[in-house]
Design a protein around this nucleic acid. Structure first.
Lengths: 137, 137
DNA sequence: CTATTATCCTATCGATTTAATAGAGTAATC
DNA sequence: GATTACTCTATTAAATCGATAGGATAATAG
């Protein structure tokens, strides 16, 4: 299940990407337009800022804005930041690998074999999608 | 993240599929061999029985056994029974569809667009794998 | 018929995670 | 210097997960 954090984060990113001008947009505007709890969205935008996707400006006329072009924002990185590992089990994770303590031999493990394929196919989808792809007609 | 329920269930199924004879195997034997909490495994095998994957026999010499040939057991059905919906958001689920209450138009939703692709690619993996595929060398 | 074996079923529990909220602090603009 | 709006920490309620306990039920062995 996709967390609301990721869902809301993606929606906020697309909202910012759809702005005609690259000017700061207030949290409240995004929250209202996308039907998101403002306080919850605050924390999400903060992590998107701390991970280099967004810039921010304080005070009147402040808000958040994209730091890169939507075509430069890949779903692999967005998902990893918001949702965590893409793999469904740590033993097939590229960036968060961890051995199963119960499994004596990964190469003979059916779960491993299946989840490797799932990881690869999901990864390909994320690699083929940037923020620009998601907002295009 | 894949739940332990699904992980254990898959391991139990492969253990049963690898038996030379189609005779009942005790829970304790599976639990021990696959390093699974026996009580937890009990409940998992029970749902696999109630959903038509396994048969069971009580009393001495009792246990669980596969009801179908491993090549007839598709990952789509196994995963749906153990893990639930394959889609990461209800609005792209084939079997558990549900409209997002916050999203005014699915066709304009970036999350929807992305998760549709994810669902399709994962579904293809599951469709291409039976229990027989997972235990083959 | 009775003891043993092993599945069946319900109920509960602790830990973790998730989504949301509260409130005070900081920096920029007017 | 007042207002605006982001920054940060802490807390909370609810849900889910993994595991455990204990007794009921059914089949076999003798």
């Amino acid at each position: 299940m996709l967390s609301k954090k990721t869902k809301y984060g993606l929606k906020a990113l697309t909202y910012l990407a759809l702005q005609s001008k690259r000017e700061p947009v207030q949290i409240s505007e995004i929250a209202e337009h996308e039907n998101i709890s403002q306080k919850f969205l605050e924390s999400i935008l903060l992590t998107l800022r701390n991970t280099g996707f967004l810039g921010s400006k304080k005070g009147k006329g402040g808000g958040y804005y994209l730091l890169k072009d939507p075509s430069e924002i890949h779903m692999t990185t967005v998902i990893r930041v918001l949702e965590g590992p893409i793999a469904m089990v740590p033993c097939v994770s590229l960036n968060f690998y961890e051995k199963c303590d119960d499994c004596p031999d990964e190469n003979k493990c059916a779960v491993h074999k299946l989840m490797l394929q799932v990881r690869d196919s999901v990864l390909e989808v994320y690699r083929n999608n940037t923020l620009a792809d998601l907002i295009s007609e």
